[in-house]
Write a protein that binds this DNA or RNA. Structure first.
Length: 736
DNA sequence: ACTTGACCTACGTTG
DNA sequence: TAGGTCAAGT
């Protein structure tokens, strides 16, 4: 085994296999390399077989990469049987096998946040819970919090005093019953059910302790209590475990992650070997120094400092923008300037922000400039209505008890099953003590009209038909025949609105995605596809090699690296988003530290004087983030020259816009282009015009909303690509 | 049963 | 802005 690429501490972390190992791995200190080498070492030294190694990563993408790397190091072994994945995917794999003993079937559905919220909403409506401070969202948070603290329904009822507390506990109880009767689990359950399994069936615990002989856990600082317990139960017996973490990068406290798990590690496991990786191979000296200067002000922190052999590098750029649009413009100009000078490819650049909502201004700016970009996370593809509808059919095919999916599609596309009919079905189900699906066995005896009966028979027949295919036919073929049967193309395209055309395009994209999955996993069944979809992380869907600038939250950027990183919206109340209590503030600082340390060569920090929220017109004055002030001046280069030049004109510009808006309010007929000479003469577009766009080529304007610079144009481009563009940004040429 | 439009509220990060 | 809700209209 060749360990010559590793430094002495890394070698120690890899070769210590007889004691539990706790690796403190600073940002960019090569922990991925250590983990892959260690796995390869364990196998190559004949200490453990691939099928007896379990490795927990933070994304599925990282899991796959790890497998590929280990396989490349050990071509003579088949490492396919190794158990690598996120906590959730590893737990789900166990639960598929052990479902029966826990009262589920192996086809149980995994409910995402959206499904969970729908279910809670339904409970609140059904039980007419109408109390101040209780809504689906707060109830969802409450339930998740309870679960992460191992509190089961009923556990807390004795402590409950207020009416609200009692109602919350009641919602939790019904919610959990509904999950069980729907043969479904939420994300938290995926971790709790394996623990229940291990507690209630010691022979199962023994089985998995024997199966997972060696455990490795990445991003250990972000494990929450159930995750820690899962690990503890599996590994405390044999103590074959290596965990890697960095307390400075703990950024998931809000979802129950506890840095204390690092301290607990030394209590649960005995004779722990602690290895510290303090050499950074990623960033320039300036970047490391600046990042450290912020996180070092945290009080609850083990004192330490990374060092690097890398160059001093460029200073940190700081830009004070007028507002979020100016910030976005600056970003574009920087990238245009940097391409060729700092780094050549667009995928060398990452734009990070604290909240997803900030991506919008950047997106508009990038479209206008023609710079290719990709957004990670945000409005998720699989969360779109048209996608969820199809997935709901497929889920019902696998798990007919799934009530959330049943509710979603029983009348989609509309088949005349309204609220009244659905209530009758549900009433029948409650009488039988069964799921709504089972209640459909007695359609004939339901007190509903003939038309509704016919619809329900057809619906039932469709699902049963698909069920007959689920074990033998590929997921792609099943999905395709479903879409064809429902005639969704016609359903959406016939309406011809750009939104509906978009929806149909998304469905085609979904089908393509299912096809790709089937090509990559030839023997997979429908249930495999659904599991893959439910447990995908944002990063899993990100193509890092595409030549495009990446836009994402700082949270999503954890574990990644880029030559050039922009951290944006550095304003009090945005980043840091919270400044109230010390604990939150320290986590915000760590988050900022994570963002800074993603960069290899260059960091650009930006903040705005004013920012619009909720997409409205009102601009809120903002204050420069304290984080920037914590960075020593000698590490910073301010982009103020440019600012001063157009500060006055920019403010005059903003005032003028506000004046015009006030005027427009009184006189809706007037447009900005008429009143303000600085706007483009050809800024007025009409329906039916043929226009030319830099990226999408020739297109026809289908709709114009608003006037002048701010008008939103719906344009159908060649190849039936529909886009909504802002007139002032679109840079269109009118052809005819 | 389903569609339309007025009105309200929300922008905190994820599996 | 945009998504959700509710009431009125078809």
């Amino acid at each position: 085994m060749n360990l010559s690429q590793l430094n002495s501490q890394q070698v120690k972390a890899v070769t210590q296999t007889s004691r539990p190992v706790l690796i403190f791995a600073g940002a960019g200190s090569g922990k991925t390399r250590v983990l892959t080498h260690k796995i390869a070492y364990l196998i190559n030294e004949n200490l453990f077989s691939p099928q007896n190694i379990m490795a927990v990563t933070f994304t599925n993408k990282a899991a796959n990469e790890m497998k590929v790397r280990v396989q490349a190091m050990l071509p003579q072994y088949n490492i396919h049987s190794m158990n690598v994945g996120t906590f959730h995917s590893i737990a789900a794999r166990i639960l598929r096998i052990e479902a029966k003993i826990l009262g589920f079937t192996s086809g149980f559905t995994i409910y995402d946040t959206d499904d969970t919220q729908k279910l809670i909403k339904e409970i609140i409506n059904e039980y007419q819970i109408n109390i101040q401070g209780i809504n689906p969202k707060t109830a969802r948070y409450y339930i998740s919090k309870m679960k992460n603290a191992f509190k089961r329904p009923g556990d807390t009822e004795s402590e409950m005093s207020s009416n609200k507390d009692k109602q919350m506990a009641e919602i939790y109880r019904i919610y959990q019953e509904k999950l069980v009767s729907s043969n479904a689990m939420d994300f938290d359950d995926l971790l709790l059910h394996p623990i229940d399994l291990f507690v209630n069936f010691p022979e199962k615990l023994a089985h998995y302790q024997n199966l997972f002989e060696y455990l490795l856990v990445d991003e250990y600082q972000d494990t929450n209590s159930p995750q820690f317990e899962f690990i503890r139960m599996l590994a405390s017996h044999h103590q074959n475990i290596t965990v890697v973490g960095d307390d400075d990068q703990s950024i998931y406290g809000w979802r129950g992650a506890d840095v204390q798990n690092i301290l607990n590690f030394e209590q649960i496991f005995t004779n722990v070997e602690i290895v510290k990786l303090e050499q950074n191979y990623r960033s320039s000296k300036n970047i490391l120094e600046a990042a450290h200067s912020v996180v070092a002000t945290n009080i609850n922190r083990a004192k330490k400092k990374l060092w690097t052999d890398n160059d001093t590098g460029e200073k940190i750029s700081v830009y004070e923008a007028l507002d979020e649009r100016d910030e976005a413009k600056y970003m574009v100009s920087c990238i245009q300037k940097f391409v060729g000078r700092v780094k050549n490819n667009f995928n060398d650049y990452a734009i990070l922000y604290r909240t997803n909502a900030q991506s919008r201004a950047f997106e508009e700016s990038f479209i206008r400039s023609g710079i290719p970009y990709t957004i990670v996370g945000g409005t998720k593809f699989y969360a779109r209505k048209e996608i969820k509808d199809i997935l709901a059919y497929l889920r019902l095919v696998i798990n007919e008890k799934d009530e959330v999916s049943f509710d979603r599609i029983i009348n989609f596309p509309s088949r005349g099953i309204g609220e009244t009919t659905l209530k009758k079905i549900k009433y029948r189900a409650s009488q039988l003590g069964s799921s709504p699906w089972d209640a459909l066995n007695g359609i004939a005896s339901l007190d509903i009209r003939a038309q509704q009966k016919k619809s329900l028979f057809q619906f039932k027949g469709l699902i049963e038909n698909l069920q007959s295919m689920r074990e033998t036919v590929s997921p792609y073929k099943i999905a395709k025949s479903l879409v064809q049967y429902l005639d969704l193309e016609n359903y959406y395209v016939i309406q011809n609105s750009p939104e509906d055309v978009d929806r149909w395009n998304n469905i085609e994209e979904l089908l393509l995605g299912i096809k790709t999955f089937c090509d990559e996993n030839p023997d997979s069944r429908l249930s495999d596809y659904l599991e893959n979809v439910s447990l995908q992380t944002d990063i899993d869907n990100w193509n890092s090699s595409a030549n495009a600038v990446t836009l994402m939250t700082v949270h999503s950027a954890k574990g990644l690296e880029f030559p050039v990183v922009f951290i944006t919206g550095l304003e009090e109340g945005l980043f840091p988003l919270w400044s109230g209590d010390e604990r939150n503030m320290e986590e915000e600082k760590r988050l900022f530290y994570v963002g800074m340390t993603r960069a290899k060569l260059k960091v650009v920090l930006t903040f705005a004087q004013f920012r619009r929220r909720y997409g409205g017109d009102s601009e809120i004055p903002m204050l420069k983030s304290e984080f920037i002030k914590l960075i020593p001046e000698h590490l910073i280069i301010s982009d103020t020259t440019k600012r001063k030049q157009w500060d006055n004109s920019a403010i005059a510009y903003r005032d003028r816009i506000q004046e015009i808006r006030a005027h427009m309010h009184k006189d809706p007929g007037s447009s900005l282009s008429k009143q303000n000479g600085s706007y483009k003469e050809d800024g007025n577009y009409q329906e039916g015009q043929i226009v030319q766009h830099k990226m999408w080529g020739r297109g026809k304007i289908h709709d114009v909303e608003g006037v002048g610079e701010k008008a939103k144009l719906t344009i159908v481009f060649t190849g039936n690509v529909t886009k909504k563009l802002i007139a002032g940004y679109a840079n269109l040429k009118i052809i005819e």
